[in-house]
Each structure stands twice: as structure tokens, then as C-alpha cells.
Nucleic acid binder design. Sequence first.
DNA 1: CTGAAAGCGCTTACAG
DNA 2: CTGAAAGCGCTTACAG
Lengths: 326, 326
Amino acid sequence: MSIQKIAQLAGVSVATVSRVLNNQGTVKEKNRERVLAAIKASNYQPNLLARQLRTARSGMLLVMVSNIANPFCADVVKGIEAEAEQNGYRILLCNSGSDITRSQSSLQLLSGKMVDGIITMDALTTLPELSGMIGDAPWVQCAEYDEHSAVSTVGIHDREASIFAIQQLLARGCQRIAMINHDLNYKYAQLREQGYREALNAAGNGWQRIAYARDLSAEAGSEALNQLLDGDALPDAVFAVSDSLAAGALRALSSKGLRVPEAVAVIGFDGTELGEITSPQLSTIAQPSRAIGQQAVKLLLQKIADPGSAAEKIILDWHYIARASC
Amino acid sequence: MSIQKIAQLAGVSVATVSRVLNNQGTVKEKNRERVLAAIKASNYQPNLLARQLRTARSGMLLVMVSNIANPFCADVVKGIEAEAEQNGYRILLCNSGSDITRSQSSLQLLSGKMVDGIITMDALTTLPELSGMIGDAPWVQCAEYDEHSAVSTVGIHDREASIFAIQQLLARGCQRIAMINHDLNYKYAQLREQGYREALNAAGNGWQRIAYARDLSAEAGSEALNQLLDGDALPDAVFAVSDSLAAGALRALSSKGLRVPEAVAVIGFDGTELGEITSPQLSTIAQPSRAIGQQAVKLLLQKIADPGSAAEKIILDWHYIARASC
DNA sequence: CTGAAAGCGCTTACAG
DNA sequence: CTGAAAGCGCTTACAG
């Protein structure tokens, strides 16, 4: 079913059909009705491929997430969706799974003109490989801040937040503060680790242990915690770079009979709903997830409207949520 | 940058460029090299819109999820992704948020020929409104089983699973078993409620209370539980239709000082990782999430390959995971 | 092994 | 207010 058939059915030209379809130009009322009737009668749906090929505009934004199962990502996506919708854009989600091949495959949607722009949440270090395909298409990098790249970004001050968390633990009297980090390919992982070391060094505390979780699942958090427990001295505090990791750590601590926060204090990161269902509830650094997504869309739309505009960096505020685990 | 330019640069026709692009037909080695060189030199990327318009094939599957933040959905999506990838298909995720307008908007991707088929996880009752747009495009409905519709589905036997859960509670000696259900627009919600009532009726137990959560968040689970606590007699067991709801219920119980399972036993549904991070850990009905996604793709691909084939229904096995909450 | 040409289904100046 | 025609960037018989 094409616009041709509709034109034929309605006894007008394709141009006229196109005009009523797009509500533009002027069409005599009687013709409009005829066209509308023909459309309804044949259950016609316009071919988006043809339309977008012609107009070079899709009204769609691609969002590339490393892991939708992560509640923080899901929250950011919600912010993205809301803002996009408000501006008449639809969003397409691709789960890259941090896999470079899969990312590249998804990027074809961009280079292939199926979407007008892209928001990535991938690891910073994978970006160079991607940027070739992205070229100078509208792009903003989300929740992964990089000061040197020429791409627009929105995120928080990760180092600061991390320092704050450690200071919190220090103020509590903790002596052996361990960290559960994630893949150092992520800039946030690097920055938070840097903050961890800085804060401890500044306090003259040389006891530093870091375990790296293989992904952001609770399971991986448990594993990481068990690694930490393997050493000579037990940590009396754990700072995890994600609530899901922290949740897994809490679980592992509990199964070892270590009370939280008495024996081991725990601080998480993200401020997701996960922190409310663990026991004890999780103290955590909350990111402004929705706002991050929202800002990302704003930057992207700006770039789409004016492709020549310069890259912009937005830093949003985090805050600490004190609950029972610290 | 178009195939035209490449042809010009390489000094061949567009047909030849197309042939090397698609690795088909035969091209003299020297010409192939020239084309490849031109492509590299100009960082050419094929326009997918044009290609798909011409071939009427996209290699993409649309997955419409009501809520990606739900871990069960995320697991199903993982199964979908894996199976799709194995068959050379890319997947596009759309978060409908159970919103009919948003669903319709996403469906334009299908009717607009941008994707070859669709997997929905929406509520059954919204489907009639959608089926008009879907027409007879390849479609499978996932995790929401309907015996009467003509669309392929894959799911579990919800009523049975629900009955089993209630019997478990009954066997434990629970007398006042409440249910936390979700929107009855979902068939699974209807079926599980039916199972709940049937099992209690069969046991001659007339004490039946149901609270409906406004969504599938832990927060909504807590709210629902508090409603349940409002009545005259306290329940001594709660069956929740989702792990996230159950997690919220556990949290609310704990804040009321009600011990689980001693004062109130709890059983969840889905078998997601959430059940492992709550305290106590959650006993739950586990769905074969990955397999559900995988089967859905198989059915869909089958339908794409042979559009005339009949709708198929697949019922997968669930199993009970006994943990500490019951 | 290669190229000219038709055509996928739209939109949009342009002329009337 | 309307239609004929060009063109978006591809692929694919078809002829050579």
C-alpha cells in the first residue's frame, strides 16, 4: 500500500495525498476528505524509510547503553525519554553490552541515517573506535565525563563524590577502607578510584585495597567482596562504585556473619531504588539520573538544530543519602 | 557521501560499487580494490534508508517492553538479544511504559517498514488497539499468554505457578494469605489472581485479600503491603506477582517490625537477581526468562521466513526457588 | 565481468 | 488549490 494507490483511490495526485498526510499546504476540503477516506479504507501507513530518505530527518534519537539491566542506566534512560518525547522525538535503545562489535553495529543506525543523533553511555576508552563511525553526526556522551574530547558530555564530578564518600567513612572512624570498583575502561571508574586514593592519602591512610567487579551485577559485587575478605586484615568499610555492586557486597557480608555497619560500613553509588530494598538500607552517593538524561537530550537537540555549534560539558550535582549502612 | 561519489572516485559504475559493498556478483580484483580504496578514503557509510527501501528488508527486530527497569523484562531482553544476534538480526528496544500512545508511536517503526518484525510484552488488553497497526506483520507476544488470539505467544502457565505458590504457603500453615497483584490489564495478573483464588477456595480458605500495586517498583510493593496491613486481621503470608513488588513488601514488613517468614511468609515471582539481595532472601517462582526471549525470537524469525505460517503458542516451564522468606 | 536504467515510496520546488 | 516531475541513495534484473 503506497501513496500512489491512495492517490488513485481518491482520484487525486500523490502530491495532494502527501499534503494531507503532512497537514501542510492547502487542500480543498472535499479532496482532503476523499484522501482521508481512502487512507482509512485501505489502512494505509506511510513508509518511513521513503519519507526519511527524502526528508533526511527521522525524528529519532539513538541511545546506546552498556547495560539496561543496571537501574542507574534505566533511570537515565527515563530522563532521556521524557525530554525527547517533549520535543517530539522518539528514542531507540540499543544495549551494547560494552561490546565493541555490537556498538559498531548499532552505530550503523546513525551513519545509515536512520536516527538524527546519538547518546552514548559507553566506556570512554571505547569511544575512539566509535568516533570514526560517528564522524561529526550529532552526539553526546552521557554519564561519562571527559575533559579532553571534543564531544558534548554531561555527568557529575566523580572524583569529588568519591572523596566525599571516603571522608564519610573516615569520619566514622573506619581504618581499613576497601573499594569495589568496575572496569577501568570507564572514566568514572578511573576518577572514583583516584578520589578514593586521594582521600586516603590525604588522611595519611596507607591501607588501600581495591577489588574489580567483572560487571555491575549484585553477583559480581559479592564476588568482589569475597576477594577483599581474602587478605590478611579484614576491611572495616567498603565503598562500591554502584548500588548493585554494594547490594551484592551487603549480601556477601551478611552470609559471612559480618554486621553492617558495625563490623563493616558500606557506601554505594548511584542512588537507585536498590539501596532501599537491601538490609540494612544503603547509604549512597546519589546521581541526578533523570536530569543527566534530560540534559543529554537538550545538548543533542541543540547540536541537531545547529550542527556547527561547539561541544559543551555539563556537570550536575550529586548528593549523599545517609541510610543505615554507614 | 553516496554510492555515486564512490563510483566516480573509483572510476566504475554504481552497480559495481554496490556489488563490492554486498560481496555478491563478481568484480574484477582491480576494480574491487579501487572501490575499497575510495570507500576508505571518503569514510563512506551506506545509507540504510535507501538500502532498506530498495530491498524491503531491515534485519532489525523491534522489542516493545512495558518497562525496561523491571529486571524480569531485562532478562527476557537478554535472551532476545542473544538469539537475534545469532541469527544476524539487530534489535531495537522501545520502552512503551504501558502507554498506548507511545506504543502506537513505536509501532510506526513496524508499519513504516523500518523493522522486519516485532516482539511485544505489553498488556494483553492493549493489544486489540495495537493489532490494527500491526496488521499481519510478523509479531510475537512475549510473557503474556493468550489462548484465543491469533498471534504467536510464548509464556508460562501462570495459573498453575500461582496455585503452587499458594499451596506452598498453605503447607507452611499460613491461614491468611494475601496477594500483591499488578494491573489486571495484564493477562498474567488475571491468571495469577485466578490461581490464588482457586488454590484458597480448594483449601476451603475464605480469607482472601488482594492489593494492586500501581506499577512494578519496590516502592509500589511497599505501598501495597501497607494497604494490606490496614485491615482488621493481619495477613500471615504474602504472595507478590513480581520480585520487585515482593522486595518492596519485605522492606515494608521490616519497617513495621514484622519478621519474615515467622510473622509473615513471602513468595515472589520471576526469579530475578533481586531475590538474592533482599533480606531475608526471597523464595520465588522462577520464570525461564532467557528462554522466553529466545523462543520468542525463534517464532518471530519463523514467521518472517514464512509469513503464511500459523500462529504458535509455546509454554515453558517455571520452577520454585525456595529461599529464606517462606 | 560491467554499466545503464528502472524503481523502492516518499516530498517538494515549480508551473499552472 | 493542484499535478507532473525530479530526486533522496540504494539494488537488481537485463543486456552486453
